[in-house]
């Protein structure tokens, strides 16, 4: 296969390079998107990554009014991951529209704006306001942030989730993504509610609730006590969520959770995600998205795939009762895990 078919990141050719993905009404030039809260407002990273190569950018979640955020400490490393309790520190939607959106809109990369409201009315009002703005490709409803009160109910109650997604879909012409929390009994049930209400895709998963303790001082490490666990430690949890939703719900999935290299990306695509979001890895490897995009064409070629789309959900299920001779998988990762 000629290499030119895989020229990652040149917008004019993405239709034929096999990398573009479709998420409901949202088309992205490639499946590599930066996760909200892990890429600032993109300008921070302009000197570090070629923003034009990204499949999409999701800036830090915005709220209707400005929020100071939670008391430090806000993050702490745990084994294989980190806990965060930032608390949606942001200057509010108006400051975002005047201060950050003009820069984001000037990029060729699609901008997906992540919003969090304290009520359905606030979500609707934000969706309406953003629909009047130029340069936004889609909205992601953050109904899963574990660090603020109010928002999280929308992600744990299927009826509330359904009503919220429906109202957002009806109040905006933009594609709507619903970002779901893993801190529920049945995430497929939540995804079904979002899909039935017209969500273009579901983003799986937000962080897992966690706590870190300083036993010598008998205090929680984080100022807010509870935080969200992210990083490589949660990748299996995220993959399980993708597999569960893929099996039960007909809705495009964006996989998130511990993705740090091209092998991780391929795992999520095969499991059923149409696209992925890179989060915590941006913190400890600022060029991780570029490295993933560099590796994507080769990884596709290595399994004789011509496009990202054809491998999405290509997971071969094992027999529920494998023969006793079944052994561990023999496939080798294509790069260091």
């Amino acid at each position: 296969m000629p290499d030119r078919l895989f020229q990652v990141g040149s917008p004019s050719t993405h239709e034929e390079n096999g990398l573009s993905v479709q998420l409901g009404r949202l088309r992205l030039p490639n499946p590599v998107v930066t996760a909200s809260g892990t890429f600032g407002y993109a300008r921070e990273m302009a000197g570090i990554v070629d923003l034009s190569r990204l499949g999409g950018i999701i800036p830090k979640t915005i709220t209707a009014a400005s929020r100071a955020g939670n008391t430090p400490w806000r993050t702490v490393e745990t084994t294989g991951g980190m806990l965060n309790s930032i608390g949606l520190d942001n200057d509010g939607i108006d400051a975002f529209i005047t201060g950050h959106l003009p820069y984001l809109a000037s990029l060729v990369t699609p901008t997906i704006v992540s919003i969090a409201g304290r009520s359905q009315e606030e979500f609707v009002s934000m969706a309406q306001q953003l629909s009047q703005c130029e340069g936004i490709a889609a909205l992601e409803l953050n109904i899963s942030c574990p660090n603020v009160s109010g928002g999280v109910d929308f992600g744990t109650d299927p009826d509330m989730c359904a009503r919220l997604v429906r109202s957002a879909v009806e109040s905006s012409d933009l594609p709507i993504l619903a970002k779901l929390t893993p801190n529920v009994t049945d995430i497929a049930c939540m995804a079904q509610a979002a899909a039935d209400s017209g969500a273009d895709a579901v983003s799986l998963i937000n962080t897992c609730l966690g706590v870190a303790i300083d036993w010598k001082r008998k205090r929680p490490v984080l100022g807010n006590m509870f935080g969200g666990l992210s990083g490589p430690a949660i990748k299996p949890i995220a993959l399980a969520a993708v597999c569960k939703v893929k099996a039960k719900v007909d809705v495009p999935i964006i996989g998130i959770g511990g993705i740090a290299n091209i092998d991780d990306v391929m795992e999520f695509l095969v499991a059923g995600a149409s696209a992925v979001q890179i989060g915590t890895a941006n913190f400890y490897n600022p060029q991780v998205c570029m490295q993933i995009l560099d590796g994507l064409p080769k990884a596709l070629r290595s399994i004789d795939a011509d496009s990202v789309r054809e491998i999405v959900g290509s997971l071969q299920h094992r027999s529920p009762n494998p023969p006793s001779s079944a052994v561990a998988p023999t496939s080798q990762p294509t790069s260091e895990a």
Binding site: G37, F39, G40, E44, G69, P72, T75, D89, Y284, P286
Partner: peptide, 16 residues
């Protein structure tokens, strides 16, 4: 000197 996760302004951990 504040606890920092990224150093480049994207995580909002290191606030004062």
């Amino acid at each position: 000197e504040t606890p920092m996760a990224c150093g480049v302004g994207i995580c909002f951990s290191c606030v004062a």
